[in-house]
């Protein structure tokens, strides 16, 4: 268990990680029609899904200490996302017949300029179908997604463990786990939707120019998480002190 004050800081840090992770996870609503690079759904909902998986994974190792909870959450979340990317690519390649290609890189507008995949060195230009902004998830995009999911899972696990630690003295273990899970999910949903306004429904992860507006997400998630953390700290302090009104 951790000190309530440290737990409050963990909630803030977790909330910020959750918000920032959305910038790294490739998602696009028009990806459903193979008209843009990224998993075929909104960035917020995808990040929330990855985060919730992380929280479930973290809950299984709640008795094993903070380090294992964080690792479990991060790995659970990353696994979920990478499996989604793999299945998405399989359907895209064998169902539609389109190769995974980064639209931003193909048009030379990615963060690291050039028209090649930054990791594999595969040429992207010429593979994007005319009229589309890429399709599927090439290697660099998948790596960005995995990195984002690791961050999101870590954030979710941090909030989960922090709320569990704060509320445990006032509740039984089962109830504390359930409450921590739903509160962590709440913090996840609050913070993962805020960046959606910056991303405007589409991002290719860290190779998208939109990563440059990450500071706005950082500030807004820092403020909203601080507010939520203060409320959780205050009410938990009242409950643990026995001031049940």
């Amino acid at each position: 268990m951790v000190d309530p004050l440290i737990a409050t800081i963990m909630i803030i840090a977790g909330g910020v990680l959750v918000g920032v992770c959305v910038h790294f996870i490739p998602a696009s609503a028009t990806g459903a029609m193979a008209a843009a690079t990224g998993i075929a759904t909104g960035p917020s909902m995808l990040s929330a899904g990855a985060g919730l998986t992380g929280i479930y994974a973290a809950a299984y190792s709640i008795d094993s200490g903070l380090a294992l909870v964080i690792v479990s959450g991060a790995v659970g979340s990353a696994l979920m996302l990478l499996i989604t990317i793999l299945c998405g690519n399989i359907m895209l390649v064998f169902g539609i017949g389109a190769p995974p290609v980064s639209g931003q890189t193909a048009s030379g507008k990615s963060t690291f300029s050039g028209t090649k995949d930054i990791i594999t060195g595969f040429e992207q230009e010429g593979y994007a179908s005319p009229g589309t902004d890429g399709h599927g998830m090439p290697f660099q995009t998948a790596v960005s997604g995995g990195f984002g999911a690791l961050m999101g899972g870590t954030g979710g696990a941090l909030v989960f463990y922090a709320v569990y630690s704060i509320t445990l003295p006032a509740l039984s273990t089962e109830n504390a786990v359930t409450l921590a899970g739903i509160v962590a999910a709440g913090v996840f949903l609050i913070n993962s939707v805020l960046p959606a306004y910056v991303l405007v429904g589409k991002t290719e992860g860290m190779f998208d120019m939109k990563i440059r507006s990450i500071h706005r997400t950082f500030i807004s998630c820092l403020v909203s998480s601080s507010l939520v953390a203060c409320v959780i700290y205050a009410v938990s302090w009242l409950a643990v002190s026995g001031v049940v009104i």
């Binding site: 609503a29 909104g42 917020s44 909902m45 929330a48 509320t167 006032a170 509740l171 409450l179 739903i182 509160v183 999910a185 709440g186 913090v187 996840f188 949903l189 609050i190 939707v193 959606a196 306004y197 910056v198 991303l199 405007v200 429904g201 939520v228 409320v231 959780i232 009410v235 938990s236 009242l238 409950a239 001031v243 049940v244 009104i245």
Partner: peptide, 26 residues
């Protein structure tokens, strides 16, 4: 920049979390 679903989840996350947390001391 986000769908109706996100707005619903976001708003209810704030509301429901507030009610759940407030039920601890009050």
């Amino acid at each position: 920049g986000t769908g109706n679903a996100s707005i619903g989840y976001w708003g209810t996350a704030v509301g429901a979390t507030s009610a759940f947390v407030a039920s601890l001391p009050f």
